[in-house]
Design a protein around this nucleic acid. Structure first.
Lengths: 221, 221
DNA sequence: TGATGGCCAATTGTATACAATACGACGGTG
DNA sequence: CACCGTCGTATTGTATACAATTGGCCATCA
């Protein structure tokens, strides 16, 4: 939206591609990144790839050790707890504030994001996850707080791995739909207090589901 | 502390050097980064420099536009507000939690960081700023929440520019010393509630000072 | 047999060289 | 005289080529 004509660098595109591969689990935990192989697979050289990897490390999705390269940061119940605790600290208040501050464009964008999420085929989990993230961000962006918005986005990306991995078999579509409906309704009605409470409960509920799933996985393993 | 023998890459060192230059104001707002010039000045090639710049953009200290390079993200009262609002949302609770969870090593590290800050020559503002950041992080790290700790560190780095630029002429040493003393005392006493309140007030106070200074600057300009 | 030290392949990290893009000056044209 | 297109230089972005570090394998030796 800032620029109509998009001029993006190779590094940018590689960044998003690799990020999606991590988030969807295509690149699994602790898997080392073979730079030459990945670069040639993507049809680029190592330099833009390495710039993308450096950014992804800063985002918290990769870890690097000098001369030993990058590995995918492993998932853990502890990290999931942290991510969702941070989201609880930030997102409800930010989203509620945005509900009050949103102009017409922001409100339409939020509605559009909601409908896009609504129409996503529940079979395509990766697509649902992306649109879910976009929806949550659309609720925060109209506050005009750029840093807060980008932080919420970052946390959403980190969270996505966990929701994709652990909520996949649960079939929680129905409840999620109801909750999202409540979120958009209260937000559009500019009922900041109700929205903040609903969003808090929504995030906390997801975290509770994740914890249960983690516990089940631990038992199964 | 994780590794005794430090094997770091050029990109890592350049990252910190450039970060310090931004934080201390040596690289001013909106100043474009001439990659070739900076690289040769640092005695490295463009590749490690560019990896460092990519990371710094992810950290929020730089902005990039394709084929037009990197520029220093300008400071603004709005961004300062955001940074400190986020710190208020996260740091007091995290620090209080760490006070309860800290083991002996963590407690000694916090004390050491406090004394280091205490002994920093108040004339060397950059040194004070760094040690102040290290102190605040030392209060959070013992909670064992890695992501939260790194986020607090990031926000601290972003905040540092503003404190360096705007609190420099104020001579607030005495009050800061008293507040830090209170912070470390309550933290060491594991009085989580008091510590949380003190840290909240400390951050809020700094923000108030910054706002006043910003307003004064705006009038003067 | 078990440990130790040195070669070798594989992989990462960096420098040099090249292509692509953007900004500014100049001259032409209405 | 204002405007527009074109060229030239400066700067960024990328590919190729090279150096440095790691980890494994095997021979050697106590």
């Amino acid at each position: 939206m800032p620029v109509s004509i998009i001029a993006r660098t190779l590094s940018d595109r590689v960044f998003e591609i690799v990020r999606e591969r991590i988030v969807t689990g295509e690149l699994r935990d602790n898997m080392p990144i073979r730079q030459d192989a990945l670069a040639s697979e993507l049809g680029v050289s190592k330099i833009p790839l390495r710039e993308a990897l450096a950014r992804l490390e800063q985002e918290g999705l990769l870890t690097s050790q000098a001369n030993r390269g990058y590995t995918v940061q492993p998932m853990s119940a502890a990290q999931a707890d942290e991510i969702f605790a941070l989201r609880l600290s930030i997102e409800p208040a930010a989203s509620a504030s945005a509900a009050l501050a949103a102009d017409e464009g922001g409100r339409q964008a939020a509605l559009a994001a909601f409908h896009a999420l609504d129409e996503a085929a529940s079979s395509n989990l990766a697509e649902v996850a992306v649109r879910n993230r976009v929806f949550h961000i659309a609720l925060v962006r109209p506050a005009g707080r750029r840093l807060t918005t980008s932080l919420v986005e970052r946390l959403g990306i980190l969270a996505e791995r966990y929701t994709v991995a652990h909520l996949a078999p649960a079939g929680r579509d129905a409840r999620a739909h109801v909750e999202h409906q409540g979120l958009i309704d209260s937000w559009m009605a500019r009922d900041a207090e109700a929205h903040q409470r609903l969003l808090h409960d929504h995030i906390a509920g997801t975290l509770a589901d994740l914890r249960a799933q983690f516990a089940a996985d631990a038992v199964a393993a």
